[in-house]
Design a binder for these strands. Structure first.
Length: 665
RNA sequence: ACGCCCGUAGCUCAGCAGGAUAGAGCGGCGGUUUCCUAAACCGCAGGUCAGAGGUUCGAGUCCUCUCGGGCGUACCA
């Protein structure tokens, strides 16, 4: 039962009956204990609007409403608050009832059941997942779990970056790896990367050109020797696939090498000649050229690009799966799918055609653009959304538009597609403008019908203690794998000191659940909108508002039940509330559904963390002041019931955040 | 330059359509263990809610301006 919603409905009705218009009563948990359990805040503003005395209106509402089954006498206080104290009978009966509903703890399902797509995680191809992917993965997973819990049909979409412009760089990187092997010069990439890095740091243009020219000449020579890939690149790919001899660890430096070469080559005028058609491509743009070929991959002549792509995709996928497995974010499920950008590749040209047909397309500097009405500054200057580059290539925006059509079901008939009422995009807040633009185009083009809710769920950046984006000591990105290793290792250290006598296997299991839980919870407990400062100490201090604090509270509860060797909870449904600590705990327990509902409404998982922390606090206070096993019946059974209800709520609540509990720690 | 976001205790953060005396954790100080897990609990100290105006019964929350920080703004994702 959602008490707050119930109170709000009845009081709002009473308000209009008392002549207070159809305004919401606005019920909130009370600010202080002496004001009861809930307070009504909405009376004053309505009274002001109607120019009547707020206390008189409050009196009328109190007279009109019937809360006899929920609350003790209502009290009008201060300028016009109504204070509500829940009946102990209600608390007792509600907790008893929730004990009979093991799965759902009496949390009501959402009023209207929707189909909701959650777009999250979305790592890039051929790069190892790093801390930047953590937030999207964890927040998206938590939101999906919560929405699912409330009865919605949740479809998870992992929009893997496997098709964008950067992918040309990956293939080009593979090509460089191939060439250094052919030339038997295994240090080539590493050597040149270092020398380029060195000259890029200084401000010496001549030196830079010199280093760049060396690479340029080598690249031109290699290309001349194997212009269609038949001599070297094809056989290389074949071998690599057969022997699985290329790893992400090889691929990353090659990718970085290409990146650096191209960024330094910008504006130098260095040209690579491609023999077949005497195509001349700027050194700085070779990878875009490769991308273009990839995007026309269904032409047989581009099959080497296609093959390289497939292989890199496979590599990434394996590595990502390891992470997802460790994080407990499962992928393969009826409603959980990896569906990368490439899946939309055949619809991209159709997107352009349809925009053209709606007369939304405009060519500007050679690129195909849409200019949504929404984006005009004061001078009427318009902001473009580029959907096709001047070289004909497609972009993130194009893919996202195609993805929207697939998700809401506005593709041409016959195509398999989803029919979402709501789509959540869990991405970095820096993409806010991008999504506003995409949503605007989708609405104007009719790709997303009016009723569909497109929502960007942005989150801030993880910072180091100097308030800079979180990096390794060397300045690189922190690999997610390393982060998780470290978390588990540190948690194991703690288990060893705190519970040295447990069997080794169990210690490892606890370390895993506590370590991973700590990482996830630390992230989820922050308001996702703001940047937050990452700290090993804070996360694994295992104090305060952390996963281990909650897990510890749970373990203590389990310990009680181990002592009495009982799993028959039906004995404990006779709840008697007498002690203030019991009452505070009971009220908190009842508010679980409010917290879950709030997370679903606002897409803010930290609200649930805050709730669980309060609950664990209420429990430990209870635990300190109210003996359970040593008290007499019927108090003993009642307190066992409260313990069981708390344990289930913590387990279920942490479960909704994707965090596991342990029986002992 | 324009746009979006942010500024709350020494540090890290909450503060839910404006509500009663702004809350936690860490750190600091002081206490609690013959008692169900001390990874715990209880108490104390610590605030001009960046600053200045305004709206009103009432502002950390809404509006305007100033200062400070972050991010974004045409072929990256």
């Amino acid at each position: 039962m959602n008490i707050r919603r119930e109170l709000e409905q009845r009081l709002s009705a009473a308000m209009s009956e008392a002549g207070g218009q159809d305004a919401p009563a606005i019920v909130a948990p009370s600010a202080r204990p002496q004001f009861g359990d809930y307070q009504v805040n909405g009376v004053m503003s309505v009274a002001k609007r109607l120019k009547i005395n707020p206390r008189e209106l409050a009196d009328k509402i109190v007279a009109a409403v019937d809360l006899s089954d929920i609350a003790e006498n209502l009290e009008v206080a201060g300028p016009g608050f109504i204070n509500i104290t829940l009946k102990n009978d209600l608390l007792q009966q509600q907790i008893a009832e929730s004990l009979t509903d093991e799965e759902h703890l009496s949390v009501p399902l959402a009023a209207s059941q929707q189909t909701i797509v959650v777009d999250y995680s979305a790592p890039n191809l051929a790069k190892e997942m790093h801390v930047g992917h953590l937030r999207s993965t964890i927040i998206g997973d938590a939101l999906a779990r919560v929405l699912d819990f409330l009865g919605h049909t949740v479809i998870r979409q992992n929009h893997v970056g496997d098709w964008g412009t950067q992918f040309g760089k990956v293939i080009l990187g593979m090509w460089h790896l191939c060439m250094e092997k052919v030339r038997n010069d295994p240090e080539y990439i590493e050597r040149n990367y270092e020398s380029l890095k060195a000259v890029s740091a200084e401000d010496d243009v001549a030196k830079r050109k010199e280093a760049l020219l060396l690479i340029h000449n080598q690249q031109q020579e290699d290309l001349n020797n194997d212009w269609d890939g038949e001599n070297a690149f094809h056989p290389y790919l074949k071998e690599v696939v057969r022997n699985k001899s290329l790893t992400l660890i090889d691929l990353l430096p090659a990718y970085q090498f290409v990146n650096l070469v191209e960024s330094l080559a910008k504006g130098t005028g260095l040209i690579i000649d491609s023999p077949p058609k005497h195509k001349r491509v700027e050194l700085a743009k070779v990878s875009s050229y490769v991308t273009k070929m990839l995007q026309e991959t269904d032409k047989p002549k581009n099959r080497q690009e296609f093959k390289g792509w497939c292989y890199a995709k496979l590599l990434t996928r394996h590595k990502c799966d390891e992470i997802y497995y460790r994080l407990g974010v499962p992928l393969e499920h009826k409603y959980r799918r990896t569906r990368g950008e490439s899946k939309y590749r055949k619809q991209l040209s159709k997107v352009i055609e349809d925009l053209e047909a709606k007369r939304l397309l405009e060519k500007s500097d050679g690129a195909q653009c849409v200019f949504p009405d929404e984006f005009k500054n004061k001078d009427g200057e318009r902001l473009p959304v580029i959907v096709q580059k001047s070289d004909g290539g497609y972009l993130y925006a194009t893919t996202d538009l195609a993805a929207i059509r697939y998700r809401v079901g506005t593709l041409p008939e016959g195509e398999k597609q989803l029919h979402a009422d709501r789509i959540l995009y869990v991405t970095d807040s820096r993409q806010a403008l991008h999504f506003r633009q995409i949503f605007a185009v989708a609405k104007e083009a009719g790709f997303a019908p009016e009723g569909v809710s497109l929502e960007h769920v942005p989150f801030g950046t993880m910072m180091d203690k100097n308030n800079r984006p979180f990096k390794t000591r060397e300045g690189g990105t922190v690999k997610l794998m390393d982060l998780l290793d470290s978390a588990e290792r540190q948690a194991l250290g703690l288990v060893n000191t705190k519970s040295p006598n447990l069997p080794e296997e169990q210690k490892l299991d606890i370390a895993k659940k506590v370590g991973i839980g700590a990482v996830k919870y630390f992230d989820l407990a922050h308001n996702r909108a703001s940047d937050y400062v990452f700290s090993w100490d804070k996360m694994l201090a295992l104090d305060g508002n952390t996963a281990p604090y909650m897990q510890y509270a749970y373990a203590r509860i389990r310990s009680i039940f181990r002592k009495i060797k009982s799993t028959n909870y039906t004995n404990f449904t006779n709840i008697l509330i007498t002690d203030p600590a019991e009452r505070a705990l009971a009220v908190k327990l009842l508010q679980f559904s409010e917290a879950v509902q709030a997370v679903a409404d606002e897409s803010l998982p930290h609200l649930l963390c805050g709730y669980l922390f309060d609950l664990a606090g209420a429990f430990t206070t209870f635990y300190e002041s109210c003996p359970v096993l040593k008290s007499d019946e019927p108090t003993r059974s009642s307190r066992l019931g409260l313990c069981e209800a708390t344990g289930r709520t913590i387990r279920t609540g942490l479960g909704l955040l994707g965090i596991e509990t342990v029986e002992q720690m």
